[in-house]
Design a binder for these strands. Sequence first.
DNA 1: CGGGATCCGAAAGGATACTG
DNA 2: CAGTATCCTTTCGGATCCCG
Lengths: 125, 125
Amino acid sequence: MADQQNVCPRFHRAVELIGKRWTGAIIRILQNGRARFNSIAAAIPELSDRMLAERLRELENERIIARTVIPETPVRVEYELTEKGKALDAAFCAIARWAETWVEPASEPTKEAAPALSETVVADR
Amino acid sequence: MADQQNVCPRFHRAVELIGKRWTGAIIRILQNGRARFNSIAAAIPELSDRMLAERLRELENERIIARTVIPETPVRVEYELTEKGKALDAAFCAIARWAETWVEPASEPTKEAAPALSETVVADR
DNA sequence: CGGGATCCGAAAGGATACTG
DNA sequence: CAGTATCCTTTCGGATCCCG
């Protein structure tokens, strides 16, 4: 019957952290190596500069990514995962595997085709 | 150097789905068995009824949970994970493991104690 | 290039009251 | 018990301009 204890606060923080809008995508990109601001922006076209900057700062505050300034002209700024960030790899792989199996790539193209939830009613148990 | 291809849309959908506010916690609760509306609500005190109802409907539309109505008086409604929902278990376990290692349980209690990000500047590379 | 500052409309979310 | 409806506040996020 599974009576519920409260959700583990650590888990809750974690899932709300990596699940926050765009952070998943950003981390995913940094998982194949360090990248520059515009490089990340180019990989996520729907994401505005402002949002990207905001999310990068948040992730930096969480110590998931590290920011490195290289004072050339023009300046170059690189982002990369910290140890904490790299440790997320296993979790992200697990999510990716689930997505491959269960999530259709496109959005809902055949709206009529979907069987429209059947109300499951049980006489008794 | 890791030049970026776009983020896999399946992965992106998945992470934004399970990462949406509260959905992680709700799924987590259902992972130890089916539960009723008020039971879930009790396990997540910060979550309002309206939000819970909304998230449950969304998860039902995604076929991650199933809703069963048992017409007693008063009515009883039970929620449980579908196969798609149960398949999330591995991913959630991976996240939980990461959280145990890297996320402190409480929020930031010692605000001054935090060393306040060091600006990493590299002379050159 | 890599952002920060500001403005503003849209959307999410909380509080409360009510219903079958 | 399991929600809906309504209102109202807060936040999110896009657009635009600016700076070192």
